[in-house]
Amino acid sequence: MITRSNFPLSKYAYGHLIGARATASSLREQVEVALAQGQEIVFDFSGVDATQSFIDELIGVLILSNGPEILDRLVFKSCSDNARAVIEFVAADRCDQFVKIHSH
């Protein structure tokens, strides 16, 4: 059975927004450890929005590093419409970029 590692993002927010790449990159290091242990990752967006920069540094870099299949091991919980739109944008853009780079 695959275990899940839960990352509540509200504790990183200022007000309702998480924005900085520096915040995302330190969080990503923890995520990478959990992924290496075979866990699924649950990002809990309850009560927060995120900038495109934050999502890109967190999710986009994981896609560029591991390929689009890493998305099968990520769960996005309780997203607002805004957060969902940013996640979909970053995922599509970085998957597209990864595929183009590796098809040459």
Binding site: P68, L71, D72, V75, F76, K77, R84, A92, C95
Partner: peptide
């Protein structure tokens, strides 16, 4: 320009 090549898992 493109759709995600993987379905995202929203809960």
């Amino acid at each position: 320009d493109a759709q995600p090549v993987r379905r995202l898992r929203f809960e």
